[in-house]
Simulated scan of single mutants.
Amino acid sequence: MQKLNIAIPQDAVWILNKLNEGGHEAYIVGGCVRDSILGRMPQDWDITTSALPEETKTIFDHTFDTGIKHGTITVVLHHENYEVTTYRIDGEYADCRHPDEVSFTKKLNEDLLRRDFTMNAIAYHPKEGFRDPFHGQEDIAAGIIRGVGGPAKRFQEDALRMLRCVRFSAQLGFAIDPETWAALCANTALIQKISAERIREELQKLWLAPFANKMPLLWESGLLAQIDATLSASLIANSQTLLEEISLCPKDNILRWCIVLQHYPIGEVKGFLKGMRLDNHSLKRISLLLEELSA
């Protein structure tokens, strides 16, 4: 049985075991499994289980409802929060972001099918090993980002996944599977349904990502043009210089925004940043630095 590169925290193992003792399946799942396989330290340890939310709440002393409508309960243990979510099947996504309704299931594979990419659709239990019906481990080993099932459907369900796809490529240095890339390019207009706050969060992670050579995927796909046509034209015209400068720039959010926006019309920068819902402190610092650069 393959071993994870990073040990699961004992508290997370304890939660898995308590759910198992209650007669339920339980696994760590998603990004924490992916990062562990890659030898990266997970930020969160998410757990998926066959237990219904009400059953989860009866097993643990300290919980609170995070998103009980969607099956998520937060278990608090030693001042740490662990999200425990019931296996579920998502309904329609009318807003291209959240399912209108969910139904609970007892089948792990049905829960994994609703996830975005194969590398994020892997479950793991210390005693059972990996549950990986969509071959996510193989894609991680090959450095490929591949949509689970039909990638077009995954993007149409949640349009933010398109930005996440590009951001993961730049963070991990992975290539995007051709079918997934074609589906992304065909659905870029759906990004307009996503809130500016969520788009900004993904862009900021992208600006800070270590594989700057993957950043052009943002505008080559047509995705950036749907977010802001002026910025897209600016980065396309200055792509080579941008990549060189951003690779040399300290990993600082303000400085990276300045590099990205240095050829943006100076009189329109504040409007763009306000539209991205950037905090006022960062907005002022970026605007001042860009004004000095253009002086």
Rank of each mutant, 00 (worst) to 15 (best):
K3Y: 13
I6H: 08
A7L: 12
A12F: 00
A12Y: 01
W14D: 15
I15A: 01
K18R: 14
H24P: 15
V29N: 14
V29G: 13
G30M: 00
R34F: 11
R34I: 09
D35K: 15
D35S: 15
W45H: 12
T63K: 09
I73Y: 03
V84L: 05
T86H: 13
E92P: 14
E92S: 12
E101C: 14
F104Y: 05
K106S: 13
K106W: 09
L108H: 05
N109V: 07
T118D: 02
A121G: 02
E138G: 10
I144A: 00
I145G: 06
R146F: 02
G150A: 10
A152I: 04
D158C: 09
A159L: 03
L163F: 10
S169F: 08
Q171Y: 05
A175D: 14
A182F: 05
A183E: 05
S195C: 04
K205A: 09
F211D: 01
K214F: 10
L218A: 03
Q226H: 13
I227R: 05
L231A: 05
A237K: 02
E244V: 13
E245G: 09
L248P: 00
P250N: 09
N253C: 06
R256E: 07
W257V: 01
G267A: 02
G271Q: 09
G271D: 03
K274Y: 00
G275E: 06
G275D: 05
M276N: 00
R277N: 08
N280V: 09
R285N: 07
L293I: 07
A295C: 13
